[in-house]
Amino acid sequence: MTTTLVLGGTRSGKSRYAQTLLPEQSGVTFIAPGPVPSGDDPEWAARVQRHRRDRPDGWATVESADVVRTILYARGPVLLDCLGAWVTSLIDDAQLWDDHTAALDLVDQRAAELAALWSQAPYDSVAVTNEVGMSLVPTTPAGRLFTDALGRVNVTISRVSDQVHLVVAGRLVNLTDAPPIPVPGG
């Protein structure tokens, strides 16, 4: 089976592209690990609704930040969209936005658990994530924490993925054969 990481910026087309990697497969489990919309953020609710409508019929949707357990219980291909929402949920649920070190420790631990499972995926599996390393350094502590955490998760999952694709401005760049950079201390 093949594991694929699809990276890209906001509105780059990464989610649409990721869905094409599992086009005709029935029994796909779509994992949406982000926060469930509440009434106080209508724009977020509209985004979530649009994503729900865009999913193929026959795909099961699981809205949960318990990504590892959801993948373990899947009985077919998996599409995880997206790792950025997962990181946000992990830090939110643990209420660690003000503790950079504890938040990164938690995210690193959960990313290692996901990577161990991802490297042994019994079904075609696709993860979508935001590429955070191509923009300005955020001006808030929470923004820097998110960027640091997601950047680390992306590196971790990239290292164990069979394929890595980058979507930029609606164009696909295949990074699969690009050599990984050395890990500090590794």
Rank of each mutant, 00 (worst) to 15 (best):
T3D: 11
T3M: 14
T4P: 12
T4K: 03
G8R: 05
G9I: 10
G9M: 06
G9R: 06
R11H: 08
R11P: 00
G13N: 04
R16I: 00
Y17F: 14
Q19R: 14
T20M: 11
L21P: 13
L22D: 03
E24G: 12
Q25G: 07
Q25R: 12
S26E: 11
V28E: 02
V28C: 10
I31M: 14
A32G: 06
P33H: 14
G34P: 03
P37K: 05
S38D: 15
G39F: 07
D40N: 12
D41F: 07
D41P: 02
P42H: 09
P42R: 11
A45Q: 11
V48Y: 13
V48R: 12
Q49H: 13
R53T: 01
D54E: 09
R55G: 03
P56C: 03
D57S: 13
D57C: 08
D57W: 12
A60G: 10
V62A: 04
D66T: 09
D66W: 09
V67K: 06
R69E: 14
R69I: 00
T70M: 08
I71V: 10
I71A: 10
L72G: 04
L72M: 06
G76M: 10
P77W: 07
P77K: 00
P77H: 03
L79I: 07
L79E: 04
L80E: 02
L80Y: 03
D81L: 09
L83G: 09
G84K: 09
A85F: 09
V87N: 09
T88V: 09
L90M: 06
D93Q: 06
A94M: 01
Q95W: 01
W97F: 10
D98A: 10
A102V: 03
A102F: 04
D105Y: 11
L106V: 02
V107Q: 02
D108H: 15
R110F: 08
A111R: 00
E113V: 01
L114E: 08
L114A: 13
A115H: 03
A116D: 11
A116N: 14
L117G: 03
L117Y: 11
Q120S: 10
Q120C: 08
A121C: 03
A121G: 01
P122M: 05
S125R: 08
V126C: 04
V128F: 02
V128L: 12
T129F: 02
T129C: 13
V132L: 00
V132G: 00
G133C: 13
G133A: 11
S135H: 08
L136V: 15
P138I: 15
T139Q: 02
T140R: 00
P141L: 06
P141R: 08
G143D: 02
T147P: 02
L150I: 06
G151I: 08
R152Q: 10
V153W: 01
V153F: 06
T156R: 09
S161N: 11
S161G: 12
D162G: 15
V164M: 01
H165K: 13
H165T: 13
L166I: 12
L166G: 06
V168F: 00
V168I: 12
G170E: 13
V173K: 02
L175Q: 04
T176L: 12
A178S: 13
P182C: 10
P184I: 10
G185D: 14
G186S: 04
